[in-house]
Design a protein around this nucleic acid. Sequence first.
DNA 1: TCTCTTGATGAACAGCGTTCAGGAGACGAT
DNA 2: ATCGTCTCCTGAACGCTGTTCATCAAGAGA
Lengths: 271, 271
Amino acid sequence: MFTSAYTEAMSDELPTLPWDRPRGRTRPPRIPLTRDRIVEAAYVVLDREGYDRLSMRMVAAELGVAVSALYAHVSSKDELLELMYSRFFADMDLPDPDPERWREQLRDYARAALAKLRSHRDMARISMGSVPFKPEMLPHMDAILGVFRAAGLPDRVAGAAGDVLSTFVDGFALEESMWQDRYRATDELTWQGMREALERYFAELPPERFPHLTALSHSMLGRSNDERFDLGVEIIIRGLASFAAEAAATGETGGDRTGTGETGATERPAG
Amino acid sequence: MFTSAYTEAMSDELPTLPWDRPRGRTRPPRIPLTRDRIVEAAYVVLDREGYDRLSMRMVAAELGVAVSALYAHVSSKDELLELMYSRFFADMDLPDPDPERWREQLRDYARAALAKLRSHRDMARISMGSVPFKPEMLPHMDAILGVFRAAGLPDRVAGAAGDVLSTFVDGFALEESMWQDRYRATDELTWQGMREALERYFAELPPERFPHLTALSHSMLGRSNDERFDLGVEIIIRGLASFAAEAAATGETGGDRTGTGETGATERPAG
DNA sequence: TCTCTTGATGAACAGCGTTCAGGAGACGAT
DNA sequence: ATCGTCTCCTGAACGCTGTTCATCAAGAGA
């Protein structure tokens, strides 16, 4: 079994050398369990073990505490994951919408978000698995919407633009994360090596059946992930620029004009 | 306990009425377990119970068979999920790249993919959780790349375009799927009702802290999901059109020019 | 010093994915 | 018709998961 932090603290009652004996009346504190400490430990486990092995028991072990102790502070594993996700947004700084610089602002924000998602192993899995939003991300949504408006996007487009950008960033990070997990499993293959293998695989497909795939294998996989990401963001930004230009030309602004020209998809039934 | 299909078949040895007694020498067949039957049962369970409750034991129960029997045909649950994902692509039809109609082709494909993802509960979860690609989707990748090239996109952009489009479709479906799960849990609230509640929540936020969110609450949530989706796809298409126009102007084609053109993206796209 | 409150404990439950020795039916050979 | 073999499926088990609950120890107040 694991030595609990609790009994560990108690073991300070054993004789200690005079010079590091607690001075004054400060006593060895019991280090009470808190939500924050639990979330912190969960991040440690996540980074070391990955999402699949992140369990309540592992977090408890990390804290030197019984599993059931966690449930006094956190109602479920889902809540713990949501707490992790919430803390995630804490220290990202937000753009101050500027009509002159909206492109850079979106680019910077997207890059910062990707970097943040990359900063903890499998974080994209948690991000994708969380409820579409938490109160902590309201300031983010507001700031990004502000940038969209500063860009001159009509309101109806601004609403959809967030979807496109956020699904791209999250999806991109998730895909990276899954490749990472995969090559971690089939180890002794480097990240770069795996991509080369993949490129070779594409290149060696029968060209008569996959003419484009074989032709573009190098264009798709020969460049760094960062380039691919930036290019993706650029595609989105240009799409938005097109709408902004159109709105500037026609004078459309916050109106509620409906439709994108045609409707084809059918609404998902409520049941 | 469950009655197994196995013993069930055997129970046909009980007396039967003459007219539906097996004619000739055809005997009641044992209906052997196959990968296909397992995948099929898995889909039934998925649709009825949802992704979270989809377990090997449930699939086995659905087939009236012991859990361990599955492992003779399928090496793991992961493999089963991948089989489900593979079958998923089987009956989608692919565009035949046409330079004149690339916009519609992308729109149609995106809508078809979304419809497919919607056709099975939580399918987006499986799609997002699967390896970035399986051999079954090679024809899809090739066809879409073909459309990108028909659009006149430079190769380096075509590679990234697929990421943007597929992450948007998958991410959109996933988000829908998660809202659905959520309101299924906190039941007696309709899909539409939940969206209205959300819109009200946004609208009632303090406007001085969230000026854009409050202003755009209706633009974001007042319209149907299909409109939001179409708009998102349109943003991407216009972004691609911008690159295509640029390539047409500068004569860029399959070259391997690097960089994303940090300063570019100012010109008005074609469409 | 005694009680009360707070909070961690460890055992338990139901369910999960996966493995494995065993058994039952089908089939070819005798 | 009986035997042996071979193919599947069975049932029990292992170790893991999230979650609950009666119990008990430590710290604070009287």
